[in-house]
């Protein structure tokens, strides 16, 4: 038997359990998309690329 005090805290499970299922599927889908669209292909390049200006005047240093 469920003790009365526990029963109230258990009610939140009706929300949390379905929510966790939905979250799992969303996370899975996002990861799948990320892999498919090449987000993990080049982990080095973009962080350098952001530093390079294409329009800087020559000899500005």
């Amino acid at each position: 038997m469920v003790r009365p005090r526990l029963r109230r805290s258990v009610e939140i499970l009706y929300l949390l359990v379905p929510l966790s299922v939905v979250l799992v599927f969303i996370i899975g889908a996002v990861f799948w998309w990320a892999l498919r669209s090449g987000q993990f292909e080049d982990l080095e390049g973009p962080r350098h690329r952001i530093l390079m200006d294409d329009d800087q005047a020559p000899g500005a240093d």
């Binding site: 080049d42 350098h48 390079m52």
Partner: peptide, 28 residues
């Protein structure tokens, strides 16, 4: 040898007449 090389090549190829897109992967 470094990320600047990637930048250099990308800029140069992209500036060529008739090139639609260029994409260089630094890691591979």
């Amino acid at each position: 040898v470094c990320a600047a090389c990637v930048w250099l090549i990308e800029q140069r190829i992209a500036a060529l007449e008739g090139v639609r897109a260029v994409d260089i992967n630094y890691a591979t």
